[in-house]
Design a protein around this nucleic acid. Sequence first.
DNA 1: AGCATTGAGTTCAATAATGTAACTGACGAT
DNA 2: ATCGTCAGTTACATTATTGAACTCAATGCT
Lengths: 166, 166
Amino acid sequence: MEKTSFAQMRCSLARTLDLVGDWWTPLILRDLFLGVGRFDDLVEDLGISRNLLTRRLKALQARGLAERHAYQTRPARFEYRLSESGRDLVPALLALMAWGDRWAAPAEGSPILFRHDGCGQTCLPRVTCSGCGEPLTAANVTALPGPGGAARDGTRVVARRLAGQR
Amino acid sequence: MEKTSFAQMRCSLARTLDLVGDWWTPLILRDLFLGVGRFDDLVEDLGISRNLLTRRLKALQARGLAERHAYQTRPARFEYRLSESGRDLVPALLALMAWGDRWAAPAEGSPILFRHDGCGQTCLPRVTCSGCGEPLTAANVTALPGPGGAARDGTRVVARRLAGQR
DNA sequence: AGCATTGAGTTCAATAATGTAACTGACGAT
DNA sequence: ATCGTCAGTTACATTATTGAACTCAATGCT
């Protein structure tokens, strides 16, 4: 009766969630991105319990999203940093933040803004098509069966539908 | 000793996770987007237990991300659909899927592809700056304090750092 | 009419995950 | 010699998730 793993599902969203979908994990990644990487700072910033933070950080290292670096010896002290794959996840986190700004922002306004250094402006992250650069929406994208599709747990019905059967 | 709520945190990512960050919830939203909206179809597709699906669907309705529609009467039968805010979340889910395609894809390749109807091409969702259209990365965005920032649980340390104190 | 089937859930018991709080242990500072 | 900091552990209570069986109303089949 283990918690169901999404790792074997034939769906890239499921596999992503298996790696970073745990409660607290995206917030930890956000903090690492923002430069909050020490154990006690994370505890204070998030209000997460210490034992759970320990487990999450170990899992993030095991999964390759974060790395543990000693920033001093005697006494040995460590901080956590994003790995390459962790940094690559940041834009997706920004997209989730942008949704929160639109649909769940506090009355006081956005707590954190982001500046795009390229153009210097405070920006809204948008999800766009790599081909033409236009914004993607639920209304203008169509799902197609991919090469790795299969009717397994996680996409049993979806795979049938995409294949055109029922 | 309740599960910690992220709803009151002064961070749009935390507030987003409070609404859709539960285990299974993003996969349910994916299925609703793909047109799998009936109770038994969701159970079969995902392999989720029925009582948990009941809870998740009720929560999604309560939070305004999904709606319950009768598609026939006598006998009364229902299906779930994305609301406006739920549809608006789809691009962020696509961004997460794109990350999974890069970092956690099965050997067989992407299970599902998406076509952007505007340009007709199979596309990679990218997160870009609304101002200039360039892709956002962890390296080219800088966090700034926003109007709703506050040193509360969730951003206690981050808010201090952004404000320039330590 | 009698019985199996379908859709949309409930109920129940066992196991896993999370939260709270106190504790450890190696230093360094007063 | 004691206090404080950092980076965790340990123990225990409370929720969550799982798996399986069960309900209930309305048809469809024979």
